[in-house]
């Protein structure tokens, strides 16, 4: 049986499959369907300094092979996470990664400082790419200078593994990746959702309350794969790939393109047990092709 272990900086994953932020709740939502401990890691919902109510309804629209969302980082804030959620999930036999979101550099810093006291949070994923909040988020992820500033500030207060999550809504994602690498990011993850929209022609109104929203699901997979490949070539730190991954074949494509681990997002909605089949499928692929470790395929695309 092939070795599925991968390493993202100091983070050891028993397999390269994690869940994407905002699509897996905090974990308990999935306990009826899977053994959370079988996953390489889980990335919990975007967490901000203050509680956020998110955007108004409607927040979701189905699109061909995908969906648009405009949740807008609804969460009860970092203190609620620490006091009420962390105690329920800290025993999970997997890596719990907190997706840290914000609109001001000081907010990111404060959230990270608070989280650093939690023993069982070995890494954060810095979300500088949420397209659904007006005042920030993506603003940090769409210019090299801003991405560098927030990464540097967080690096100073967060000694454990720091993953920076990149926005695809940019002209050159590899440049942004390099600028966060230069400021001390231990890994990058990509992609967050692609900005999109949908219209109801009968009412002549947008389908989302916010007009535009984030596109996810199989529809974005080719774009995500291309970006992961470009970024993996540009940086030395590990890359975590995501965007439309719905089965083991998709996951293997991302690994071949250079991702050291992958995240599954929207596919969890259609099959809450999909992550387990993906892990099994990767293992079968490795065994069938006589690879002894998942590292035998990471970045091994032949062009």
């Amino acid at each position: 049986m092939a070795d599925l272990n991968v390493r993202i900086h100091n983070l050891l994953l028993k397999n390269p499959v994690m869940t994407a932020s905002g699509t897996f709740g905090y974990g308990p939502e999935f306990e009826d369907f899977i053994d959370i401990g079988a996953l390489g890691g889980i990335v919990v919902k975007g967490t901000t300094l203050e509680p956020r109510q998110g955007n108004s309804y409607p927040r979701m629209a189905e699109t061909p092979a995908g969906m648009l969302n405009a949740v807008g980082l609804q969460n009860k804030g970092v203190d609620y996470f620490i006091n009420s959620i962390y105690p329920l999930i800290q025993h999970y036999n997997t890596n719990i990664i907190v997706n840290v979101s914000g609109s001001l550099v000081e907010d990111y810093i404060k959230v990270c400082e608070k989280l650093s006291a939690l023993k069982n949070i070995p890494a954060i994923e810095l979300n500088i790419s949420c397209p659904n909040v007006k005042e920030g988020g993506m603003a940090f992820g769409t210019s090299c200078a801003a991405a560098a500033t927030v990464t540097k500030a967080v690096r100073n207060v967060w000694p454990k593994t720091l993953i920076v999550k990149l926005s695809p809504n940019v002209t050159n994602i590899a440049e942004i990746a390099k600028s966060v690498e230069d400021e001390g990011a231990d890994a990058v993850s990509l992609i967050n959702t692609l900005l999109g929209m949908a219209i109801n022609i009968d009412t002549r109104k947008p389908l989302l309350s916010t007009v535009t929203g984030g596109l996810s699901g199989p529809a974005i997979k080719p774009v995500a794969l291309r970006m992961v490949w470009q970024v993996a070539k540009a940086v030395k730190i590990p890359v975590v790939g995501m965007g439309g991954i719905s089965n083991a074949k998709d996951a293997i494509e991302f690994l071949l393109a250079g991702a050291s681990a992958i995240q599954v997002g929207t596919a969890n909605f259609i099959d809450p047990a999909i992550t387990i089949s993906i892990i099994k499928g990767i293992e079968e692929y490795l065994d069938k092709n006589h690879f002894s470790s998942v590292y035998d395929i990471i970045g091994k695309l032949e062009c």
């Binding site: 979701m60 629209a61 949740v71």
Partner: peptide, 16 residues
């Protein structure tokens, strides 16, 4: 409401 997951993980189906 419009729903994506049905199990409380996406927060797409909220009501005020």
């Amino acid at each position: 409401n419009t729903m994506a997951c049905g199990i409380g993980s996406c927060l797409c189906c909220v009501t005020d």
